[in-house]
Design a binder for these strands. Structure first.
Length: 645
RNA sequence: GCCGAUGUAGCUCAGGGGUAGAGCGUUUCCUUGGUAAGGAAGAGGCCACGGGUUCAAUUCCCGUCAUCGGCUCCA
């Protein structure tokens, strides 16, 4: 007998060689029906693999990540089996489960896989499912495995096997398809009730640009047809929220081939959103002791040689601008920090002057590869809400806390409720990759961790993700569709103070090196507006939306009164407009609703006589009648309740 | 940059070897209206751009550019 310890710490005795599915059955038939895989001492196993020693186990169903991963990974195998049957000679790379489904990288030789091939493959997979194809775990010595794939002429698997340690290698067999795989898998395909192949893409073998590009087929599967429908609906919803689509519909921004790829043109309404965001942050920063600075869009190449950016990114940048006569070269500014370093260096600082905080909405230019460009989230020119804090080492933690406060304030104002912080630390085994002393690194990392603890942030610590010049704290927000985006960032930098030989005079009357903090709560204005647009599906918060109020006269007879209302609203600095079109009220309301305007003011005979407006709120309907002043005060209060900090 | 797909009116899209169509929007006219689409008429396209095949190309082929889905990259 062996002891099986369940997650609730209860202990059950079973015969040696008991399997996950048998344990599930002993608990309940329902569980046995739904269980997909089992963790044995934190390793996920097949349900029919015998457990021979005492173990902690956890049964996985669709409700946990491991269960989903098991189903997806097994579906990837079924897809590969289907492809092997339909396209003989296809060679297989890797086929893992991912966050949303699975993929398989396949070399089709000369054959080009087309979207219209996917339904055929899906059909074949469904066939296998209805035949309840099993996944059988087998072990094979390494040399035999190599032989098998050499005969099959699959150089990808040969490469993978060659990298494995000697000894037995595990395979899974499903139908005629045998795949190198450490598992785990479903016992058979029957839990897979719905499969959808999503897309085809190219992917370099092992992610290496210099190697062959394989065809990657993405797919997803579910234990219920309804879940697939919901997933597809979610994809549709994401499409509807796409900032590129909303940006066009709401006239926020555009692109022009004449101007160039990745160079956004901000239309009046989009520019207004940006300006409001900028003014908001400027106000916050003014209170927090920041000073605005302004720097040019180009700088002498020497600046970037000194900062080190030239060496690292010079070749990938827009190439330098040359002066006509003297042999001078200037780069479009890819970073604001070297400029701010020069500003710091323009005068002498005492320890009492620190910290110094320079802020600038600085537009930078980076040559992104053409295939990388994507709406506003990846562009070649963008404006960072940048600031650089120059402080003493002992001020690091306090400054971090202050920046975190700013970021949280912003998230609150913009209704990002679900966020977490990622702390990126150095990799202790690769100290040679970093600049700065180990003592400084440890001090800085301690300061970050303490700061996030004090703020009670939900944090994730990742070793080895730090920049070469210092550790950092990134903020990831989840949008309304549960997608994660990286927005604000705070980074410690020991490199630039060194390279620019920055110093301040300490209380000991000696020169000391300041620490620099880079921070950008929005990240880039372009990217932030994109994420915000998708988060709120174009229904921007009242204080931010370009058109807050639209006045709808019942007929042309009330145009004069509408203008009077408009002028009154202007006194309250509310952004409003009259719908002057010769349309019926129902049409005007409909257009205002689809246009996502928060408030509609309907004015006709009654309103003109009583000096009132009939208020309709977006998506909520009729709110009743108010005097213009009362209405305006309500709206102003609503805005101030968010902007009051 | 790489693999694949796409490019037709301001937008969303249909069509197809014989120089083009719908809906929405826009313009004008009728209508003067009360909480999610009133009616009529008109304007609007070098069918992305450049080559080739053909009597004839928007349609087929090649190239370029741009966009989309990924890969690689992201100070």
């Amino acid at each position: 007998m062996i002891k099986i310890i369940l997650p609730d710490k209860s202990v059950k005795e079973f015969n040696k060689g008991v399997t996950g599915i048998e344990i599930a059955r002993s608990i309940s038939e329902g569980l046995a029906r739904n269980v997909l895989s089992v963790s044995v001492n934190d390793e996920v196993w097949d349900l029919n693999r015998p457990i021979t020693k005492d173990a902690h186990i956890k049964l996985h169903t669709w409700d946990d990540k491991e269960g989903q991963a098991t189903m997806w990974h097994s579906t990837a195998h079924l897809m590969a089996a289907a492809i092997e049957e339909l396209f003989p000679g296809a060679k297989f790379g890797i086929g893992p489960d991912i966050d949303n489904g699975f993929y398989y990288d396949i070399d089709f030789g000369d054959k080009v896989l087309r979207p219209e091939d996917l339904p055929k493959i899906e059909k074949k997979i469904k066939e296998y499912v209805s035949q309840k194809h099993t996944f059988n775990r087998e072990e094979m010595p390494k040399n035999k495995a190599l032989e098998y794939y050499k005969i099959k002429n699959d150089e990808y698997k040969v490469e993978l096997i060659n990298e494995l340690e000697d000894g037995n290698i595990t395979f899974y067999k499903t139908g005629n398809f045998v795949d190198l795989c450490k598992g785990p898998h479903l016992m058979d395909a029957s839990p897979i009730k719905a499969v959808k192949l999503i897309s085809i893409a190219g992917a370099y073998w092992r992610g290496d640009e210099s190697r062959k590009q394989l065809t990657r087929v993405y797919g997803i599967s579910f234990p219920k047809k309804k879940l697939l429908d919901e997933y597809l609906e979610m994809l549709e919803e994401a499409k509807k929220r796409d900032h590129r689509k909303i940006g066009r519909e709401m006239e926020l921004f555009t692109f022009s081939q004449n101007v160039g790829q990745g160079l956004s043109l901000w239309l009046p309404k989009g520019a207004q959103i940006r300006e409001i965001l900028e003014n908001f942050l400027k106000k916050v920063q003014l209170k927090a002791g920041y000073q605005q600075v302004i720097t040019p869009h180009i700088a002498n190449k020497n600046l970037y040689i000194q900062s080190g950016h030239y060496e690292k990114y010079g070749k990938d940048s827009f190439q330098p601008i040359k002066t006509p006569n003297e042999d001078e070269e200037f780069f479009l500014k890819p970073m604001n920090c070297p400029h701010h370093c020069e500003i710091f260096k323009s005068k002498q600082y005492s320890y009492k002057d620190l910290p110094v905080r320079f802020a600038e909405f600085g537009t930078v230019y980076r040559y992104e590869q053409s295939g990388e460009l994507h709406g506003l989230t990846r562009v070649r020119s963008f404006t960072q809400d940048d600031a650089h804090i120059f402080c003493r080492p002992d001020q690091l933690k306090e400054e971090f806390i202050k920046v975190i406060d700013i970021i949280m304030l912003i998230f609150k104002a913009l209704e990002f409720k679900d966020y977490k912080a990622q702390i990126s630390l150095h990799d202790p085994d690769k100290m040679e990759n970093y600049i700065g002393t180990i003592q400084n690194w440890e001090k800085a990392e301690k300061a970050i961790i303490e700061a996030t603890n004090e703020k009670g942030l939900d944090t994730e610590v990742v070793k080895g993700e730090a920049a070469f010049y210092g550790p950092k704290l990134d903020f990831m927000v989840k949008d309304a569709l549960n997608r994660e985006w990286q927005l604000g960032t705070i980074q410690v930098d020991y490199n630039l103070p060194e390279r620019f030989d920055m110093e301040y005079v300490g209380s000991d009357n000696k020169k000391h090196r300041p620490v620099m903090i880079h921070r950008a709560p929005f990240g880039s204005m372009e990217r932030f507006v994109a994420v915000l647009t998708e988060h709120c599906a174009g229904k921007f918060p009242l204080w931010l939306t370009p058109e807050q109020i639209i006045i709808l006269p019942i007929s042309e007879k009330y145009q004069k009164y509408a203008e009077k209302v408009l002028n009154l609203l202007k006194n309250y600095e509310l952004r409003s407009r009259i719908d002057e079109r010769n349309e019926k009220t129902g049409k005007k309301i409909r257009d205002a609703e689809t246009g996502k305007i928060p408030y509609m003011l309907i004015v006709g005979e009654k309103e003109e006589q009583n000096n009132t407006v009939s208020v309709r709120k977006h998506q909520q309907g009729d709110m009743g009648t108010y005097s213009v002043d009362d209405f305006a005060k309500i709206v102003v209060d609503e805005i101030n309740s968010i902007l009051d900090f």
